[in-house]
Nucleic acid binder design. Structure first.
Lengths: 180, 180
DNA sequence: CATGTTTGTAAGTGTGCACTCACAAACAAT
DNA sequence: ATTGTTTGTGAGTGCACACTTACAAACATG
């Protein structure tokens, strides 16, 4: 035995997040995940219950990583006001998604929410993040809503590549967004 | 000849927006679009240069419809202040995407921006809408940015089905969003 | 070392789908 | 009528990919 199945699952899930992030659920063959993880396709199917199970599990680690980063960011807040804590969380999130994998995976997951299991995984992820943001920052509903609205704006900016567009309308949309 | 090719193209594109909106680019076979439009798959391939050409053209009509709706909404604004005009535009947009097709198509398009032609179509669409919003409303960069941030929040609300979630975090995210 | 369990794979199988081609019918022009 | 053009389809073709099975090697336990 080279490795335990549980350890394999972890490495496969991490690579799955990266690989699915590029082309999405339907356009990513399981072979691609297996190759990136350095194991055979057949073994991926033994470790997970089909492609869907793999994707749902990857969504879990994606939102876990986001929640952890936001939690750590909140600890580094300078003051105690809700807005200061939200800003610290936003900064931590911006840093986290600099590599784009986690952001793109969220976009891909939201695009395949016609599959009920994935819709539920997305809801579970946002439930976890949103409840934490609200309780930890002590922010109002409106502040939390704004926090996520501008988070979603980042998805547009990155997927459409608006940082690369020098035109005024694109500059307006990207203004003040932390180095995406 | 039953119909002209150009008329066929129009009807095919309208059904294509609806059909692609459900399952996205990769999960939607051209057969599904052809069947929904009531013609053969082979003829769809003659009318458009492949599945990608069809999708890009559908993106064009999607953003056309959005731009038209926002333009019409601006006409119905009560006052002349940027915020009043933006609100009127937002209301018109909310009405337009009540059927979800246009909203879901945007989400699907953003998910396949790794295909350059689609990325360019998305940029072109937002370029048209954003420049119009800014010039017509006379709004500041920050106002335009906020307009689109909350628009993107609608994408999350609809794809994750948050209107159906009674929990507080979901109510916070959906608060004040016009009947999605 | 014999037997059982877990890790791992090579080689299929069946299906769905993008795209093509040969061909037909409706219409137009002379 | 004849010829040409446009609209339309049925019947393929070839390939990619989700998932399975049979089998092998590493390790554990008595």
């Amino acid at each position: 035995m080279r490795s335990t199945a549980e350890a394999r699952r972890v490495t496969v899930l991490n690579t799955a997040v990266s690989v699915f992030a590029r082309a999405g659920f339907h356009a990513t063959p399981v072979t691609a995940v297996a190759a990136a993880a350095g194991i055979s396709e057949a073994y991926v199917f033994r470790l997970f219950s089909g492609k869907l199970g793999l994707f749902v599990a990857a969504a879990g680690v994606c939102f876990d990583r986001i929640a952890d980063a936001i939690e750590a960011g909140a600890e580094r807040a300078e003051g105690d006001s809700p807005q200061e804590i939200l800003d610290a969380m936003g900064g931590a999130y911006a840093e986290l998604i600099a590599d784009r994998d986690l952001l793109l995976f969220q976009v891909q997951a939201q695009a395949v929410t016609d599959i009920p299991e994935i819709a539920e995984a997305v809801r579970a992820g946002y439930r976890r993040v949103a409840t934490f943001v609200q309780s930890r920052a002590g922010a109002s509903d409106a502040q939390v809503q704004q926090f996520f609205a501008y988070g979603q704006l980042c998805h547009l900016i990155v997927t459409a590549g608006l940082e690369q567009v020098p035109e005024p309308w694109a500059r307006a949309l990207t203004a003040g967004i932390r180095h995406p």
